[in-house]
């Protein structure tokens, strides 16, 4: 099964009792910085042929691949 939108999952669990049981978080991971902490600049070059994946702002590079 693929990942689907949260809204669609929530709509499917309508019949589950409204009072929740114990909330369990098995694991949580940070993959990269949240969007409000990222510097999102224009990405230059080509992802497929030339892998010189670079950020156009070298002084303040994109946090996602800095």
């Amino acid at each position: 099964m693929d990942l689907i939108r949260l809204e669609d999952v929530l709509s499917q669990i309508e019949t589950i009792p409204q009072v929740p049981g114990i909330l369990v978080v098995y694991e949580v991971r940070g993959l990269y910085k949240p969007i409000d902490q990222q510097n999102i600049h224009d990405r230059t070059f080509c992802e497929c042929i030339c892998n010189r994946y670079q950020c156009s702002d070298k002084e303040d590079p994109c946090s996602g691949h800095a």
């Binding site: 999952v9 929530l10 669990i13 589950i16 009792p17 409204q18 929740p20 049981g21 114990i22 909330l23 369990v24 978080v25 098995y26 694991e27 949580v28 991971r29 940070g30 993959l31 990269y32 910085k33 949240p34 969007i35």
Partner: peptide
């Protein structure tokens, strides 16, 4: 958007919905 991945039980989503 928040750069997060997690594994939870159904109760977390039920709680979030309410």
């Amino acid at each position: 958007m928040m750069g997060k991945v997690s594994l939870v039980n159904a109760e977390v989503l039920i709680s979030f919905k309410s």
